[in-house]
Design a protein around this nucleic acid. Structure first.
Lengths: 215, 215, 215, 215
DNA sequence: GATGAATGAGGGTTCATTCAT
DNA sequence: TATGAATGAACCCTCATTCAT
């Protein structure tokens, strides 16, 4: 369930730990923090538990992060940063709309939904309103880029006659909506009624782009 | 000496308080609690602030609610309970699908989105994962009923030939998705890029049910 | 050894506790704080110990004082404030220089040296350099007034021909010097060689004003 | 593996360190420590800052001193030790009282007041009460010697008929008092009202020994 | 020797909860 | 009922001290 969180850390800031051990420790702390923050929320999470889970002493956290809030913010940045690069490359391709949607779905499921990043997104959703800097980071570095890319693709598709509706362009959120809904749902209701993300996204795509061979 | 401040777990029901003043006080506390919990999250909210905002003493809160968590849970129940009844009546009607969707949209915007209930939903989304009882309450008392109602309507509509797809029935969440997305979005990104709920829901309806006179 | 610290609290600021109990508690905390701060210094003193000594819970301290530093500053103000008034009245009288000196000596010994105020002065001397606000308070509210009063008296005495030297007026500190020295000495060396404040002050007065019947 | 960083409690003596570098380092640490202890007090000073200021690693301090308190005590000893010798030589001379006083004044101003030693004395005054060993060291190694010397001189002077008062002999502290007062004053009130040590000491000498050519 | 990352006990502060009035 | 002073457990953060390199 833990992933050593390699990743290029495009957006991560501050902190320049030299040794390998130091990096490993930092990552262990970040992973532990993600677990604890996810399980209890930012305010209720205890750095004591983060330390315990990371296998370090409490003070060690402060060698890597200025305080609890910094840890939280850097956590989000660190785990989210790498996505950006990946996304840009998807948008670069020039394929039929539906194909791209399928690809995006796969990327989302593989890189986000079945990943720590699901927790990260949940944290952004939960805590974002109390951390404007964080919400802004996510909007600027991730979301707005995705939206821009999607809109470009959609405009392209319309020029090619693949779609005739401009609702897409006004509300590209609708494309990702099922993904977000699934993330929210899974945290709340999965034990009552599990939800098949992939299938729901497919269904939405069918509505949006018309029925195709799904997969 | 203390009154455990029942609340039978059944939806709303202002747990039989004696005087009128008492009811008013209780409501004031609930309103204040909603504001504070929304602004700071459950864990970070201070009962001191709730009391101040409600214009009562801190101890008074404990005359109406067993503890902070009870206050939170009863808050959700109290603010969400009434919705249920309203919804049932909508489902009862037997109108064309699109018409019903339009009605549901209006109800959602009027009764939820432009209301305290938006905050309540946000709280459920944010804090629900840490309050299984609450998630269960919401699922059982609200969500599952809505889904059941929607599914019934959809099945009806299919029988009437209004729709031929069973994706609806498998994923009725897609109908409400834009509403949830808008609630999440508004808490995070409205200052960067506001979102027109109504229009986005319309757009989604167009995709789902085909284009109609939107209003 | 403790003195309930009545006193009019001329300079004391903030905090308006209503009840008698509240005032008593506040005073108990101030007394305990004086003891602890005196024994260990500001930085090393533990509020835990202050609370214990005052017979209250740790949190209670924060009902009366914003934080450790406030407690410290208000302590100094509270214990020093009352002196001011007393002093003014001494200066008001119009007596022979030596007589006034004798009176000042008595007041100093009675009101300061054999009092909590000795500890307070020691704290001002020890911690003042790190608490400029405090040093300023003491200078403005106490010291400068004393110096002003003394200088006025001396000028008067010179006009009367009681003294012909202006060294007094330039360095009125010399009059109080033995008192301060005694306070410093007693904290450091009393166990090796005790010092008789009264006698030393008398000796200094003899040097300054010429030998007289010392009382 | 560690060297307990002796320091035999005898005054100064840079506890026989091997290399020249080592001595320099030790001195750098002592200087840095003096600065930090003076600025923040013993308890609040951070060894981290001492190390930074001394240009060494934190651990290095522990190669030279057993712990924070040892560093502090050795600091006082090291900076105060040398004074002793100097003083003895002054007392050895056999000059008129006033002349000796003038000389002592000069030595005090040159060797103490315009020196790091002023800070050291301030530290003794501030922290001495919490460090009995230190107060004892200072009393035994410095103060009692000075007092003994002064008393000897005074007795001598009386035999010569230079003075007829025994107040001096009972309270030789009065001779040094203005120096101590000036040190205390300068740390607290110099920004409000600076004090001319030399002049104040002269004034006191005039009172004590009668007016003479002040240089 | 020298370093500085790591440790973890300690202490200031907060705040849910209690209870005397 | 209502109050709000009092409580004390809990938690973030600091920093003296250790120790592997």
């Amino acid at each position: 369930m833990r992933r050593p969180a390699g990743g290029s850390s495009l957006a991560s800031a501050s902190s320049r730990p030299r040794t390998l051990k130091s990096v490993a420790r930092r990552n262990a702390i970040l992973d532990a923090a993600l677990d604890e923050f996810s399980a209890r929320g930012f305010a209720a999470a205890r750095l004591d538990d983060v330390a315990k889970r990371a296998g370090v002493a409490k003070g060690t956290i402060y060698l890597h992060f200025a305080d609890k809030e910094s840890l939280f913010q850097e956590l989000i940045r660190f785990k989210m940063g790498p996505v950006v690069g990946t996304l840009e490359s998807v948008f670069a391709a020039d394929l039929p709309l539906r194909t791209m949607a399928e690809q995006a779905l796969e990327i989302f499921v593989r890189e986000v939904y079945n990943t720590q990043r699901k927790q990260v997104l949940r944290l952004i959703i939960s805590e974002g309103p109390r951390f404007p800097v964080l919400a802004e980071f996510y909007y600027r570095e991730v979301l707005s880029r995705i939206l821009r890319g999607v809109r470009a693709i959609l405009r392209h598709a319309r020029e090619r006659g693949e779609i005739d509706d401009d609702a897409f362009i006004r509300f590209p959120q609708l494309i990702g909506a099922p993904g977000i809904i699934a993330i929210v749902w899974s945290g709340l209701f999965d034990r009552f009624e599990p939800l098949d993300v992939r299938a729901m996204m497919q269904a939405q795509f069918n509505f949006l782009f018309g029925t195709r061979r799904p997969q």
